[in-house]
Design a protein around this nucleic acid. Sequence first.
RNA 1: AGCCGCGUGGUGUAAUGGUAGCACAAGAGAUUCUGAAUCUCUUUGUCUAGGUUCGAAUCCUGGCGCGGCUGCCA
Length: 538
Amino acid sequence: MTTASETPHLDFIREIVAADVSAGKNGGMVVTRFPPEPNGYLHIGHAKSICLNFGIAQEHAPSSRCHLRFDDTNPTKEETEYVDSIIEDVKWLGFDWDDHLFYASDYFEKLYNFAEQLINKGLAFVCDLNADQMRAHRGTLTEPGRNSPFRERSVSENLDLFHDPVIYRILHADHHRTGSAWCIYPMYDYAHPLSDAIEGITHSICTLEFEDHRPLYDWLVDHIDGLPSRPIQREFSRLNLNWTIMSKRKLLRLVKENHVSGWDDPRMPTLSGLRRRGYTPESIRAFCKGIGVTKFNAQTDMGVLENAVREDLNKTVERRMAVLRPLKLVIENYPEDYTEEIEVINNPEDPAAGTRKLPLGREVFVERDDFAEVPPKDWRRFTLGAEVRLTNAFCVICTDVIKDSAGNVIELRCTYDETTRHGKNPEGRAKVKAAVHWVSARHAVSASVRMYDRLFTVDNPEAAAGDDGDFTSFINPKSLEVIENAKLETSLAGADPGQRFQFVRIGYFIADAKDSLPGKPVFNRVVTMKDGYAKQGK
RNA sequence: AGCCGCGUGGUGUAAUGGUAGCACAAGAGAUUCUGAAUCUCUUUGUCUAGGUUCGAAUCCUGGCGCGGCUGCCA
């Protein structure tokens, strides 16, 4: 049942598409395209565009489709490695182009013929001006610009607007697909609208910076004969996420200068980085849906992305216990050399996830941060004489604190209350305020855990660097902290690469797909838990 | 001081001439074997000055602010 309040809101692009469909334009068909240039890896900003273009096509199925087209008109920048990564990333995000995979370079011959058509019509000409001369003729902010002396005639009403935009340039460079077949290559402004038209695109959706190019887009699709469709271009604002950067050129620099381990470094905003970090395609799609589509130059908070993955993982992922910074806790009234197995729920949000057995012995590890010798106000965790519940087990009272000669706390002693097993709290007994996670010392497996944090120390690195500053000076030196000897519950040793968990009370983690070995997983922190306590402290 | 586009709580995003709503963030409480999740409540907004109108976030004009454009990049 759909009520009025559940009617999904249409963004302005979808409104235009819907209006065109109901007006019967293009025979009711909707054909969009996602047109990356294969000169870098896809990032979260591209995800916005992918979700928009493929999403619109899905919403108008079956009389619709979305093409994946590589905009490979500049052989000096483009590589097959990027093509492969882009294909992988779009698939991973959950979209399918069926057999509509295209390359602008497939159209070089057609585009060349179109250019001849323009020349024959007197709408285009070959210009011998060099770059500087051409710049001079183009005009300035205050002057209108002059015709090239090589343009022997004036034809179109649009020429005043465009000052003879370049549509081809000479480039003696090998192309990743066409090799040395061409020494002239079409410019984006020429190739894009015509590629759209060749493919029968109906709605060519791009970002705001192309808005100024729209008259040229229209001019071209109106002046070439024999085009199968008359696409329209509409523009929306690209994604800006704070605490990171979205410029492909700058991301490339991070990789080339080894500020990160590669395009798929889990701190990168690339789709391959987010994937390795542990983000799910579902969470990224939900994020893209949530941020909307407008022409407003927005700055989206990283917290919105983080919230999206928490929301997804909270519902879908099994819980495990892991102690990152271990402190030994000895349960003095617990029998020595005894192990019991506790049956625990895998995911309280999903009964279908079932249960597992958790071993428990006399000595356990607890989180160092969960003990305070001098507790702050409202402290609910370990401190001398206070009672705390060991999650899934029983309540204990800390009876003794053991220190080394330097005064560091090296061990805690406690006694447990048998009547509080399995979450029981006998009648009349004061309720324990907190439950903390733990791992049985004898059964714990050691692992290294990578704690990722924001890549930059400022919320807008590019703005902070300014025009002549260097954004790399704002790289967060603490964006990666590796914990080598975290203590994990036994079952985690068998985690599959790519498997995600919630480490209770700590955050969401994924067994790294590259560095995990059989029986020896390495974990990446996807995102922390929300921490209401830490917030209080601020 | 050209052209194009955009201005709604802290951040985003709705309201398409008729009750300014939603999400995230923030705050208070309830609940809790995760200081999570969940639930309830709360704070905060139409850039500005005029105009049109019974009525303006919405339409018009000026101002201010922000972004884009001045590659033989895309």
